[in-house]
Each structure stands twice: as structure tokens, then as C-alpha cells.
Amino acid sequence: MVHAVRTTDPAAGGFVTYLQSLRRGMTDDDIELCWEGVFPRNANWRVLALLRPLRFLRRVRRQLETADLLHVHGVFGWHVLLSLLAARSLGRPHVVSVHGHLHPDALRERRLSKRICLAWFGRRALRRAEAVLVTAPPEREIVRRYAPQAHIVEVMPGLEVPPVPESGAVTRAGEAPGPIHVLYLGRLHPHKGLHRLIRALGEARAEGLDAELIVAGTGSRSYRLALWLLVRGLGLRQQVRFLGHVGAGVRARLWRRADVFALPSRSENFGFAAAEAMAAGVPVIVSENVGLASLVAGRGCGEVVPPENTEALRRALLAYADPSVRREQGRRAHEAAVEAFSLQTMGAAHGALYRRVAGTARGMASVRDRAPDRV
């Protein structure tokens, strides 16, 4: 199975985490996964780097010559267009994981180029796919708007969930009081709402909440500067720390230290970072448009707030002033993660899909080989 992605850089966010989880969850020795990315880093200049797409096309075609099918991640970009061209030329079937690309909020960014991509090859990629993978019911409905006849498969991503919660929200119960550690982990982009979280932190502190915010992730230089100026203007330079992109070891330490995790995005098809927080036993604050919002609300393991609402974020932060609330919601978050985020279930669902698609393709090829030539 060849997986085509824009980049394999972990800083790119959720789809790389998705692939890492899939590789760990795929226990079927008969299925071999390989990745091909166009760009080595999640760089903004990638569209202009024309040599890399050409090299990607040669690599992915070489991989597909001995593969059974192509799995495309996303709807836009060089990797979608070129990998589909290679698969079509070799007669290989493909499946698509949408990863939130079709959400109305995501389509507002680089609107013209995305419309061109949809008209040129995006809709065709969805319509011709043997399956379109989504992570939540709202994304299923969005896909229906662009490909009404698509065969849509809903698969909950998996994670490695520790046997017991490890977060500060649970383990620091009974310790001497100190500042509440609020964690944001992800890409720095206006879409994620981090600027509103910073404003909400300032307002909550003005009401007496002793809290600090740790920001792990990177993004465009202009937005990083805007965030830094906002922190400085609000007088929060001692309460907000920017760590940049962090590796797996630092990430694990951050989960153990965190009391609350916040993801106030305008939209997320799933919300991998929020799922990781739950696995560690960290209560979460998410917007209503995050794919995990219904799970968070149903299991009582966090606060669900309207998107783009600083006041709601302020109230959510104040709700965690009580350590017993953090402890109880952290425990519930871990229990929900144990039940919902199974690597084995994720791997088995993908394995079954790959076998079905590959088997159908082989059967059709066999029929074509046996068919008599027409006179």
C-alpha cells in the first residue's frame, strides 16, 4: 500500500500522526505500508519548488509498480494530482482520506487555488475512489456535497493509551496549590484560535485564576509575531511560553505536566492533539466544530465551547480552578480514550478495506485478461 502525502514532517500535524498510528496499529504481516511525501519539511514555499513534485512522481510510480493500491491523504496539492496520475497510468485503484480539507472553514484559506484544484482533480479523486475515509459523521455529510455517490467509510483513529492516566490533572491531586498549566499543542495558525485562548487567559487571570499557558508548535512567521505582540500587550510574558515544535520525548513530558488542554479551532475533522490529551488523562477544552466534541460532551471529560468565542473560553478556564474538577474530568478523559481510541481497531478497519479494494481490483484484472478480443 502506497500512502501519498504532502510531507512526512511531524510538524505538519494530524495526518502525519494518523499515519504513525496506522503503522503501529496494522498488525497484519501480509500488508506492507510505505509513505511518499513531496516535501521533506512543512514549508510555506513548497508550491514553488517544482523539482520536488517531479521527483515525487517518479518515486510514487516506482512504488506503485509493485503495490496493490494507492491511499491519498487530502484533496489538494501536488501529491494528490501526481499520485493519482501515476495510479491511473498503472491501473491501480485508490482510496482517499479527507483530513478535514473540505470543511467550509478550511476552504476559506487560499480559496481560489482550492477551487481550481477541486474543479481540476479534487472532485474526480473523490468520485473515482474505491472508498473515502472520514473520522466523524459531520465530515461524512461534507463529502456527500462533493461526491454524492462516494463509498464513505468512517474510521476512528487510534492512539497508544497508557494503562493509567499520567497527567498533572490526576497525579498532582493533594499537592500544594500552584498555577494551572494550560497546554496548547499544534500548528500555529489563526484557524486554531490560539489568539482567542491568550485573550481568554488574560481575562481569567484578571478574575483571579492562577494559570499559565504553554504553547508547543510552529507556524507562519507573521502569526507567531502577532501572538508574541498580543502576549506582550496583555502583560502575559511571564505566563505564556512558546516552545516551538517539540519531539516525542518533550511531548510526553508536557502531557504529564498539563492540567488542561485547549483546542479552540474554528474546525477540526478529528482533533488528534485533543485525543492525545484524553489518553494522558488531561481534561480538554474544544470548540463545537472539533470532531471529538460530541465524545467530550458525552463523557463529561471537558468543556465544549462555541467557536470564535473568547468569553466562552474564559468561562471554561475558570471552571478548572477547582482541582477536584480537573481530577475527575481527567479520569473520565482517560476512560473515554481507552474505549474509543484503539490502535488495533484502526489497523483492522484499514486492513479489511485494503484487502477488499485490492481483491476487487485483482478480480477485475483477471476478467480483463480472460476476455476475448473484440472483432
Results as ranks from 00 to 15, higher is better:
residue 143 V to S: 09
residue 17 T to Y: 03
residue 94 H to G: 00
residue 37 G to F: 05
residue 257 R to N: 05
residue 312 A to Q: 10
residue 191 H to C: 02
residue 88 R to H: 11
residue 218 T to R: 12
residue 33 L to V: 06
residue 242 F to E: 07
residue 355 R to D: 03
residue 43 A to L: 12
residue 219 G to K: 15
residue 237 R to M: 09
residue 141 E to Y: 02
residue 114 K to P: 03
residue 253 R to G: 04
residue 63 Q to K: 15
residue 175 E to M: 15
residue 244 G to R: 09
residue 210 D to Y: 03
residue 337 A to V: 10
residue 283 P to T: 00
residue 192 K to C: 05
residue 216 A to F: 01
residue 106 A to L: 09
residue 244 G to S: 08
residue 375 V to R: 13
residue 214 I to Y: 13
residue 133 L to D: 01
residue 242 F to V: 02
residue 287 S to T: 15
residue 233 G to R: 11
residue 146 Y to D: 07
residue 47 V to Q: 06
residue 199 R to F: 04
residue 210 D to R: 09
residue 240 V to P: 00
residue 21 S to N: 14
residue 285 I to N: 02
residue 184 Y to T: 08
residue 203 E to P: 00
residue 243 L to V: 05
residue 181 H to W: 04
residue 339 E to I: 00
residue 342 S to Q: 05
residue 293 A to H: 01
residue 189 H to S: 13
residue 152 I to W: 01
residue 98 V to C: 00
residue 24 R to E: 13
residue 326 R to W: 14
residue 129 A to G: 08
residue 53 P to F: 08
residue 184 Y to A: 07
residue 268 E to T: 10
residue 298 G to A: 13
residue 20 Q to N: 12
residue 204 A to W: 07
residue 353 L to G: 00
residue 285 I to P: 02
residue 10 P to K: 06
residue 270 F to A: 05
residue 338 V to F: 06
residue 331 R to M: 12
residue 334 H to E: 00
residue 202 G to V: 07
residue 305 V to Q: 11
residue 316 A to L: 13
residue 285 I to H: 02
residue 187 R to T: 12
residue 265 S to G: 13
residue 166 E to Q: 14
residue 12 A to D: 03
residue 127 R to F: 02
residue 135 T to K: 04
residue 147 A to C: 10
residue 338 V to C: 15
residue 364 M to K: 15
residue 318 L to N: 14
residue 113 S to Q: 15
residue 179 P to M: 04
residue 366 S to W: 11
residue 354 Y to D: 04
residue 78 W to S: 15
residue 229 L to N: 10
residue 192 K to D: 08
residue 332 R to S: 07
residue 114 K to R: 14
residue 187 R to K: 14
residue 255 W to P: 09
residue 145 R to D: 13
residue 154 E to Q: 13
residue 111 R to Y: 11
residue 262 A to K: 10
residue 204 A to P: 02
residue 362 R to K: 14
residue 261 F to W: 05
residue 276 E to N: 05
residue 111 R to V: 09
residue 202 G to S: 12
residue 113 S to N: 02
residue 74 G to E: 05
residue 318 L to V: 15
residue 245 H to Q: 08
residue 146 Y to P: 10
residue 90 L to G: 11
residue 271 G to D: 03
residue 111 R to A: 14
residue 335 E to D: 12
residue 90 L to N: 09
residue 109 E to D: 13
residue 207 E to Y: 01
residue 310 T to G: 12
residue 63 Q to G: 02
residue 93 P to E: 07
residue 134 V to K: 05
residue 210 D to N: 08
residue 7 T to A: 01
residue 239 Q to T: 06
residue 173 A to Y: 11
residue 269 N to G: 15
residue 2 V to Q: 00
residue 34 C to E: 07
residue 139 E to K: 09
residue 82 L to E: 01
residue 338 V to K: 15
residue 23 R to E: 11
residue 329 Q to C: 02
residue 250 V to E: 09
residue 8 T to N: 09
residue 364 M to I: 00
residue 268 E to Q: 11
residue 367 V to H: 08
residue 153 V to I: 11
residue 231 V to L: 09
residue 120 W to N: 05
residue 136 A to S: 10
residue 163 P to E: 13
residue 119 A to M: 07
residue 34 C to A: 05
residue 124 R to Q: 14
residue 106 A to K: 06
residue 86 A to L: 06
residue 96 V to A: 03
residue 171 T to L: 15
residue 333 A to K: 03
residue 314 R to S: 00
residue 320 Y to H: 15
residue 296 V to I: 09
residue 266 R to A: 11
residue 170 V to D: 03
residue 337 A to W: 02
residue 290 V to N: 01
